[in-house]
Design a protein around this nucleic acid. Structure first.
Lengths: 189, 189
DNA sequence: GTCTATAGTGAGATAGAC
DNA sequence: GTCTATCTCACTATAGAC
């Protein structure tokens, strides 16, 4: 397939970008069309309504999430390292779709909320399988949520700490929770 | 004071409630006026514009935050216990104002974002002072953020775990990070 | 101090030309 | 497939009655 849906994808990108940068309120059909370089009529040819546009974005997120799930299970450093590090990795297509959909989830978009919850549940299940103790898995997953919350909602990971070694330091702290995996006081600065 | 600003407060309550229940998009002047039991004109007498309404809510949040700060510092079980437990305590006036303002922060309301970041920073500072190790304080604060993210954005603490003892269990796991504070396997289960 | 009425703007959506 | 033109409706805000 050389380029089956270039306009469709451009429109979804524009919608996503506006949601991330300015929130649901600013992501109007006019603004999306302008950002995608098409007219409003052109946009509505590809997505018959705003709801259809939202559905398109959610479907795209689900496709990214399925791919991420496979990558997570194959991650060489383990699922904890993978999930924690990718909690803050801004810029991947998956990450951007995730943030855009969380903007929608704050409104009353039920489907956006359930999709996000499903992605999160998959992560926590994988961590629990890796770590053993469900209570520890929950704490680790909450740290991931916290990182995500900071980078997404508060605008920057660096609300608290954006040093280069901050992520290694955090993982070293979390390693203390899983004595089976990391026996010694390894990388703690 | 018998009731100095009852209409003003009712309007802020209505605005806040709509933001929490349905997001920024739905919190229009019409809807706020209807929910507060006044007309649109009446609303605009108290708050000259929508921006003024937003400012009013943020100011109210700051007042609650100052009161919370004093309560945190006086908390008998320590700041970690206090911050973690109140991360998910839905229903207090402070909590509701916080959630409402985070809805606004997702848009482009810069002041809402900085206010939230300031509240968060105060918590983390207090935890760091209590716990000693800044890296541990950061991990604990991220767990608090994660709890908040779950109860706020995903709609329920119970995405993962809403059992009665879940909070005690979580605190027991976190206690392993602060060997200086909690020597034994205290509140586990 | 609170209301009704309404102006002005921008939203989502449709119809039909190209 | 993409455009322009247009419709309707909801939103913010103003003016002035009560």
């Amino acid at each position: 397939m050389p380029r089956p849906d270039s306009a469709r994808d451009r429109i979804l990108d524009a919608f996503q970008g506006l949601l991330i940068a300015s929130g649901e309120r600013a992501a109007t059909l006019d603004a999306v069309a302008a950002a995608a370089g098409v007219s409003k009529g052109g946009l509505l040819y590809h997505f018959a309504s705003k709801d259809a546009l939202v559905d398109g974005l959610i479907e795209r997120l689900e496709a990214f999430a399925a791919a991420d799930d496979e990558r997570m299970r194959a991650a060489p450093e383990g699922t904890v390292d993978y999930v924690i590090r990718t909690s803050v990795e801004e810029g991947t297509p998956f990450d951007e779709a995730l943030i855009a959909v969380s903007r929608l989830a704050q409104g009353s978009h039920e489907k956006a909320r359930t999709t996000l919850a499903a992605v999160r549940a998959r992560w926590e299940t994988a961590i629990a399988a890796d770590v053993g103790d469900p209570a520890v898995a929950r704490a680790i997953m909450l740290v991931s949520d916290g990182l995500y919350y900071n980078s997404t909602l508060l605008g920057a990971f660096g609300t608290t700490d954006s040093r280069d070694g901050a992520m290694d330091e955090l993982l070293a702290v979390l390693a203390r929770l899983t004595p089976t995996a990391s026996p010694g006081p390894a990388a703690a600065s």
